[in-house]
Design a binder for these strands. Structure first.
Length: 682
DNA sequence: TAGGTTTTGCT
DNA sequence: GCAAAACCT
């Protein structure tokens, strides 16, 4: 199918050779040029942090050597604009086809859409695939064809889909190299001199690269998995899977993970091994959360910037850089929190439980804006993953319909004795407390003077007093929530009176800026300060380019999303350019097979229904055909037409639409309970 | 001891 | 907000 030219396989966060549908498609079509483009400026405020870049560097080296052993190098390009680099590579290699696997963060949705548009206009065939998820976000819908808004219902559906996730593909045995003689690689720089020393330590603990990932997976599944449930409460146990950085860069295929874990699940179920079954369910759930993070990101592309429940917009965050600094440095006076933050700083790693502890402390006790914390995680975690981190912080912040209650404060002292009963974790990361007896290790401020003295601790000198007392925090939180509800009610009233629909309060909906010391990693380039400006001229909607079926469960062309009140969700601005849309989609023309349009993400009020219907007809057609689910759709979401903050208007009230927090809650929970929500899928 | 009350875990 | 677990009495 290749014509004469070769295919470019554009690697991004799918740095593996096995179960890589873009690569497989490229091989089948003939000669392949494997390409990686390093364009960090495109990531706006979210350029990868030091440890993340270290990982990427190793992983790419690994991928390159694997590819070479199969017959072709990995071409690397340094770029400020991926799309023009793609065009350059097309020219230099005479490629006629571009293949890549989907990503779901907002910047990628835009960029990939643009890539598809631009290259298609140049006569290049562009095909894209699902390599990152069990199911594409638009495949997972409720009975009305709408997106789920709670994790449990989403995951339940995933586990009970009428068809299984695709079986993982094998790695190629050899690859026919495209002509890259006129397409030299750029040297990519991922670390500066000052970072090298710290990075050297990472290599002792981690082995990036897809075949190492594969070994790690096998080892985990045959080892710690069975104890996963039992051990999940320990702060420093070696019982987490440690697969997350591998997963972030796509060194591991989630479908493969799922597949292998399911085999164990069946095995242990047959043996009646309850602990094993529970472990599997729990582990799969964490895979499910990762899926859900993409799902949320696709359906609510602003989820890394804005709370999904609108009322949180009115929360009076404490904008206190001193608190923020104390938290980052592990000097809050709460040993478990501080130990976690020091571990994160030192290693780029944090056990999931401790992530919850430190982030909930951040939001509830310090009441700092959650996006600061999220950004810090992004900068420091080895497995930094924007979608997962956004989901995690939204959960902690109580901004998800099924998140935790906002007004409950966890007590780090109690959590300390729960997750670190013997104080070993604290002693490892807080040497200044290492001589304190376990009895006091999680609350040194209560320890008698003599005990402190014997342990060599002088509070306020070599270890701080608690930065905020829990009682004070509780009082301040209640006060803040009161304020939030009042403002929310006032705003709702204003909207109902029609006095203020729209732009009035853009200052409130605009996110609080990052503090300067975090901001310094960004900003030379104007594009970075407004990550979406890059794409502002591309206003059209999804650009599905080709074939492939996406199964749509719902029979009726149930049109709009959740609520019919006039609001719209953030990712779906009203000012969609349908002309472009039509051109982008329907004229894609005679690629193989059917044309697929996916509209989950779209909320087009007028004029789009024909499009949608066309889409669904073609879906109906294609879903009856074979099991070919390659090819695919580039999920794209349209950027705001004008300014950044305009975008916030549309999604004013987040998932809950214009209903109040309580109503939203009640609804979602009723829905949940109604269905009797089976605990597991046993 | 059964019964009520409080705490915990949810993504 | 709910269910299950833990904790009282």
């Amino acid at each position: 199918m290749s014509g004469g030219g070769c295919s470019i396989v554009w690697f991004r966060r799918d740095l593996r050779l096995d179960d890589n549908p873009a690569l497989t498609a490229g091989m089948r079509a003939g000669a392949v040029v494997a390409l990686f483009i390093w364009a960090p400026e495109e990531e706006g405020q979210y350029q990868p942090g030091r440890v993340s870049r270290w990982w990427l560097k190793q992983s790419l080296a690994h991928l390159d050597s694997s590819l070479r052993s199969l017959g072709t190098p990995l071409i690397t390009k340094r770029s400020a604009d991926s799309v023009s680099s793609l065009l350059g590579v097309v020219k230099a290699t005479g490629a006629t086809q571009l293949l890549f696997n989907h990503l779901y963060d907002p910047l990628s949705l835009i960029r990939d859409h643009r890539a598809k548009e631009v290259l298609t206009a140049q006569g290049i065939a562009v095909r894209s695939f699902n390599a990152d998820l069990l199911y594409e976000p638009w495949e997972v819908n409720d009975a009305h064809g709408q997106a789920f808004t709670t994790f449990s219902s989403f995951w339940e559906r995933c586990l009970n889909m009428p068809y299984d996730p695709e079986a993982p593909l094998l790695p190629p045995k050899r690859i026919i190299a495209g002509d890259v003689s006129k397409c030299p690689s750029d040297t990519l720089v991922f670390e500066d001199e000052s970072e090298k020393a710290s990075n050297a330590l990472l290599a002792r603990a981690w082995s990036p690269g897809w075949s190492n990932a594969d070994k790690a997976l096998t080892a985990f599944i045959n080892g710690p998995l069975i104890e996963y449930s039992k051990n999940r409460r320990k702060a420093d146990s070696a019982t987490t899977s440690f697969l997350s950085p591998h997963l972030h860069f796509g060194e591991l295929s989630v479908k493969k993970v799922f597949h292998l874990v399911r085999i164990k699940q069946v095995l242990w179920a047959n043996e009646g091994n309850k602990a094993g079954e529970e472990s599997v369910n729990l582990f799969l759930k964490s895979i499910g959360l990762r899926e859900y993070s993409r799902y949320i990101s696709f359906n609510h592309p602003y989820s890394h910037e804005r709370p999904l429940l609108g009322h949180l917009k009115f929360f009076p965050w404490v904008v206190n850089e001193g608190y923020f600094k104390a938290w980052r440095q592990g000097r809050t006076g709460y040993p478990l929190v501080d130990a976690g933050m020091r571990e994160l700083w030192a290693t780029g790693w944090l056990h999931d439980r401790i992530r919850v502890v430190v982030s909930s402390f951040f939001v509830k006790v310090l009441q700092l804006p959650w996006r600061w914390g999220m950004k810090y995680f992004w900068d420091t975690l080895l497995d930094a993953d924007l979608e997962s981190d956004a989901l995690g912080w939204q959960y902690i912040s109580g901004t998800l319909p099924d998140g935790r209650e906002f007004d409950r404060i966890n007590n780090p002292q109690f959590e300390g004795y729960k997750f670190d009963p013997n104080g070993e974790y604290v002693r490892r990361w807080l040497p200044e407390l290492s001589r304190l007896p376990t009895e006091w290790i999680h609350h040194p401020w209560n320890a008698p003077e003599s005990v402190l003295q014997a342990a060599g601790i002088e509070l306020g000198y070599n270890y701080p007093f608690p930065i905020v007392g829990l009682d004070a925090a509780k009082a301040r939180l209640e006060e803040a929530l009161l304020q939030m509800w009042q403002q929310e009610a006032a705003s709702r009233a204003a909207i109902e009176n029609g006095t203020e629909e729209g732009l009035g309060d853009s200052s409130e909906s605009a996110p609080i800026a990052f503090p300067p010391d975090i901001q310094m990693e960004e900003g030379h380039d104007p594009v970075r300060n407004n990550p979406l400006s890059v794409a502002q001229s591309y206003e059209d909607q999804m650009v599905p380019s080709i074939t492939s079926q996406v199964r749509v469960e719902d029979e009726e062309a149930s049109s709009d999303l959740r609520n019919s009140t006039g609001d719209s969700r953030a990712e779906v601005p009203m000012n969609v350019n349908l002309q472009q849309n039509a051109r982008g989609t329907l004229n894609q023309g005679p690629n193989e097979g059917t044309l697929q349009v996916v509209y989950r993400n779209t909320r087009i009020q007028n004029g789009a229904s024909e499009l949608r219907n066309a889409a669904e007809e073609s879906t109906a057609e294609s879903s009856s055909s074979s099991s070919r689910r390659d090819g695919g759709v580039v999920p794209v979401w349209s950027p705001p037409a004008s300014s950044y903050s305009d975008q916030f208007v549309g999604d004013e009230n987040g998932i809950g639409a214009s209903s109040s927090f309580l109503q939203t809650h009640r609804q979602s929970h009723q829905l949940l309970n109604w269905r009797g929500l089976p605990q597991t899928n046993s």
